[in-house]
Design a protein around this nucleic acid. Structure first.
Length: 408
DNA sequence: AAGGCGCCCAACCGCAGTGGT
DNA sequence: GACCACTGCGGTTGGGCGCCT
């Protein structure tokens, strides 16, 4: 694509900002807001490019920024979210109020990455570097499955983040609409409302998950979130994590056939195409609400050449549930169960995502006993204990995210 | 005291995505 | 559909600072 540099004009200043410049920028934004960053520097009397001004405001001058040392809680949150989201700093920042993505990124690169490395954990994959786990005892499969499910989780979290951002935007735009204002309110403009956020999506959003290894289904997720239902919807998603839906679904299965709308708990459905291409469409939704509440859809596109849109016969209409999947899809009880059996094995499916992680950890400790490298007193015991709780803490984070958090 | 070294973090850079025309 | 303007994001840089020798 390529764009002309914004700062290539001669005479524009670069480098650290002076207090005078800060003052000018602050004063201007407080008075006028920041409708157009391109035009702002000239109006504010700054010899800077708009991009530089935006960055200075976003990362430093905004009044709702917390500066200083990261708390232990914040550190844990960053590590856990990074395990799920990777280097999606803006998404991670949505979990950390008053922290900017830049700050989090810096903190990760300078502190947390090193700490994980010291713990013997690969900061990229969040897996133990000494991969005794991946021995020939079948745990490699579990580890691979774990990775696979973490990617589910990653895409899901990202979808949630977008949901919240969209919700915020809508509420802001509603506010603005009521106030009859456009960009002349510093904290009501779309930019400031989504300071830590990605561009606000339209009604439907395709998200690409981290690249999957060959032979695994490619994961994308689509969201279609009525903002009013976000809170309950996210509770539903959390319930999915908690594995509660599995029990409920299985119980219902015993009752002879499952209608997702009959489930008390939030439900999910997977839609499989007739052929062997893995093309499930999973909907995580609040079935107790009216049926028009489409909540979250995670779409698996087979690695084969088929496209989910064309192959599965699934059509989503804006603001509605997926049209037609009721007829062709299995209920979540059987569909997801069978799908996950194929992917991760029956025992794993029965136990749910969270338990899988815990099981993996407990297996580690049971199998290894002392340590992965077989040594006692090597100084790694402390880190092993951390590793044992590592993934479970990640899930705990997700499961325990309060509904009223900035994220939820 | 001073030079070297490593760390930290604000800021820059380039690309991607989106909306308007 | 092509083009342009603009914003957001993530990787990278480099200057300042503190610690060590």
């Amino acid at each position: 694509m390529g764009r002309s540099q914004c700062c290539d004009k001669v005479g524009l200043k670069k480098g650290p900002w002076t207090p005078e410049e800060d003052q000018k920028l602050l004063a201007y934004i407080e008075e006028h807001g920041h409708g157009s960053w391109r035009a702002l520097p000239a109006k504010a009397g700054l010899q800077r490019c708009g991009k530089s001004c935006r960055l200075r405001w976003t990362n430093y001058l905004r009044p709702d920024i917390k500066r200083g040392k990261f708390s232990l809680q914040e550190e844990q949150t960053i590590i856990q979210l990074h395990a799920l989201l990777g280097n999606r700093w803006s998404a991670i920042a949505t979990h950390l109020p008053k922290r900017t993505d830049n700050e989090i990124k810096n903190y990760w690169n300078t502190h947390l990455k090193k700490r994980l490395t010291k713990m013997g954990i690969d900061p990229v994959t969040h897996k133990p570097k000494n991969d005794a786990l991946l021995s020939s005892d079948g745990q490699s499969k579990t580890a691979a499955n774990l990775s696979h499910m973490a990617q589910w989780e990653s895409a899901r979290l990202e979808a949630e983040a977008r949901l919240v951002r969209e919700s915020k935007l809508r509420s802001h735009s509603l506010q603005n609409h009521h106030l009859g204002s456009s960009h002349h309110h510093v904290f009501a403009s779309s930019s400031s409302a989504s300071t830590n956020s990605a561009p606000i999506p339209n009604n439907t959003n395709k998200l690409e998950a981290p690249p999957l290894p060959p032979s695994q289904p490619q994961l994308t997720s689509s969201t279609s979130f009525p903002s009013s239902s976000s809170s309950r919807s996210l509770e539903a998603i959390k319930s999915w994590n908690n594995g509660g839906w599995l029990l409920k679904a299985n119980n219902n299965e015993g009752n002879g056939g499952t209608n997702i709308n009959d489930l008390e708990s939030p439900t999910s459905t997977l839609s499989f195409s007739e052929n062997n291409n893995v093309q499930p469409i999973m909907t995580v939704g609040s079935a107790t609400e009216n049926n028009s509440t489409a909540v979250a859809m995670i779409e698996f596109v087979g690695t084969n050449s088929g496209s989910s849109e064309t192959g599965g016969g699934v059509v989503k209409e804006e603001g509605e549930q997926w049209k037609g999947y009721h007829e062709s899809s299995m209920t979540f009880t059987s569909g997801f169960h069978e799908f996950m059996e194929g992917v991760v094995g029956d025992d794993v499916v029965e136990e749910g995502f969270t338990n899988l992680l815990l099981k993996t950890n407990s297996d580690d400790s049971e199998g290894g006993g002392e340590s992965n490298n077989g040594g006692r007193g090597s100084g790694s015991d402390f880190y092993e204990a951390d590793n044992n709780n590592y993934w479970s803490s990640i899930l705990n984070l997700v499961n325990s995210s309060p509904s009223d958090s900035p994220m939820f």
